[in-house]
Nucleic acid binder design. Sequence first.
DNA 1: GATGAATGAGACTTCATTCAT
DNA 2: CATGAATGAAGTCTCATTCAT
Lengths: 205, 205, 205, 205
Amino acid sequence: MQQDRSRARQQRILDAALRVFSRKGYRDASVDEIAGESGTSKGGVYFHFPSKDVIYLQLLDRTVARLQDKIEEAMAEHDDPIAKADAALLAVLRTFDKHATLARFFMVEALGAGRQFQRRMAETRAEFAAIIREHLDAAVDQGIIDPLDTEVAAQAWFGALYEVITGWVLVRKPERLEETYAALRPLLMRSVGAEEIRLSTLIKS
Amino acid sequence: MQQDRSRARQQRILDAALRVFSRKGYRDASVDEIAGESGTSKGGVYFHFPSKDVIYLQLLDRTVARLQDKIEEAMAEHDDPIAKADAALLAVLRTFDKHATLARFFMVEALGAGRQFQRRMAETRAEFAAIIREHLDAAVDQGIIDPLDTEVAAQAWFGALYEVITGWVLVRKPERLEETYAALRPLLMRSVGAEEIRLSTLIKS
Amino acid sequence: MQQDRSRARQQRILDAALRVFSRKGYRDASVDEIAGESGTSKGGVYFHFPSKDVIYLQLLDRTVARLQDKIEEAMAEHDDPIAKADAALLAVLRTFDKHATLARFFMVEALGAGRQFQRRMAETRAEFAAIIREHLDAAVDQGIIDPLDTEVAAQAWFGALYEVITGWVLVRKPERLEETYAALRPLLMRSVGAEEIRLSTLIKS
Amino acid sequence: MQQDRSRARQQRILDAALRVFSRKGYRDASVDEIAGESGTSKGGVYFHFPSKDVIYLQLLDRTVARLQDKIEEAMAEHDDPIAKADAALLAVLRTFDKHATLARFFMVEALGAGRQFQRRMAETRAEFAAIIREHLDAAVDQGIIDPLDTEVAAQAWFGALYEVITGWVLVRKPERLEETYAALRPLLMRSVGAEEIRLSTLIKS
DNA sequence: GATGAATGAGACTTCATTCAT
DNA sequence: CATGAATGAAGTCTCATTCAT
């Protein structure tokens, strides 16, 4: 159908926009460049999207949705709540490891892109933290870990992960992002007083 | 003398720039607005600073220097390396608690301000992480904590702190940033396997 | 088609720019004024030309090309090399006589327009002198005139012409530029030791 | 006296201005740069001169006066009117040969510097041409050369000289400007129908 | 007399957005 | 649907000139 073609075009524009925003940041990326990179014209872009803001916002949405899918998928394979949270982090890490463009866009450029996006970014961060928190809470409920301020713990986990990824994006060290996780994981586990879980149970997937 | 007046004016411009950048971010802040906010004219700003970039960079420098001063000061009151690192974090938290403008500028806007600043930001992050790491290393050496990957641990501490502050900047919850530290601290300590140190020894200052 | 419209608009911008540069010189002419004079907006000008420099340069090119066309055309009607050179000078004079704007642009403003154009202007002068020289050389070869330093002679002819035109542009005397040629021509001819050629053979066209 | 100091300061500013204008042209030279080059401050420059225009104009005047002095001096050594005119040209050539900065300022930058200077430049050119003309007229009166349009002849001589000098300024070829005169001189002489004068009588000085 | 801080008009250029073709 | 020409607001930066110190 025509609708398919339209959808495909939109996808191509979003893909191009991701690359351009990732390279230049929101303000320094021009609609012209996005149009060029997507093989369309400026008019074409404006046919599919009402404004540059909206492209950015949709990209943010798409990124969040993809990450959440990955996370849910990864968590589904575990029952233990700590293992679930742990798997979630690893899933995020792996996704960014494969898509450095996405990582730069989401980790580095998004927060300072402009006031108009900050509410959304705050929400997004909260959502991710909420996922972690949910399972930490469950762990507390099930007596796996001692009670603690799970809100702050979730924030701390998220922040630690964020920092490791950002550092990787900016400096590209270590080569593979996943390597760091071997060192990060025990820190996180100990921080909430969780017993070590055999990594093997996590990395099977 | 004239030199004093000049210095004072430069300070006023930097102060104004901090507020404007904090409100709008680098790109959305105009030199005109900085000039207005500092009670000068556009030409006046350009008399004291060669470009908008340089203002931003000097602001970054100034912020880093101030934070490092606070940190050194705080650390000087402790001998135990863990307590030193711990005190450093608290000092940072308190500084931002008092200067929300500075927090927003440094935590939210700076990273995504543009490619031209990212190398500097990466360095800055590395510097702060290095301070933490140094004392974690000392703690390992003195047998206070078990050996661990202190580089990643430092990054994780920094990231956790960063996230807590950023969350506070964006949502302004909790009211006082320092409150969170009561919950954050044990997490960090446990994460490196450190025994609890009585908070009282820290908060005396 | 659209391409035609685009071309036409470019021409209109160049025409307007010629007038404005001729009136004010390169530096004192503003892009705004060129835009206004061409019935476009500033953005419109920048859609068709990447910078003010480029407009100026294209104008220079266009002027040179037009003059060279006139010259070739005029020379084609003569066989005698001296007559050819002579006809070339007359063609240049007549062109400027009809287009005082062009004359002012090319003779008065161009040289001092800025360092970035001086190499081009030097080349241009050399090209015109080369045309004259070529035919003086031919005249020497054919024994029409005695051997002489044709490079300097060509430069001198060009300079004499240039000065006469510049004087006319600045003072607008005599009314018609071509009139001066009656007095200038014998000087030039004698300077290279050429016999007088009947003017009638030249002015038929 | 103080007046001497003031005069000296003015001279230093004018000298500096000559260099800067020669390098950059009128518009691209800044008062700041002139101040710097003259070892003064911007305020200092404005104490001695009311505006940038006036500096330029005084420089023009000074240059003209110096050239005229050289010319008068050179002409005083000859009685024959043709020899006088001839000596004048050579004097100009030699002056510029020694002061390339002056040459660039006066030959290349001055004409296109801006509308405000063009009347003055036109006058100046006319003055120089008038000197030449005067002696050509005398030569006609004394029966040394046949009657001719001395106004145009003077213009042509001036133009030929101008072009040779300008070419030298732009391309710096030949190494020494004076060399060219050996080739240029006979052309000029023949152009007015003058017999060759032994160069030896000219170059003694 | 001299300095350099300050002003403000104006320059070039960019770019999101609109719209005729 | 798509193109690319056009607009106009806004932004960074320059600089001649003025003036308090």
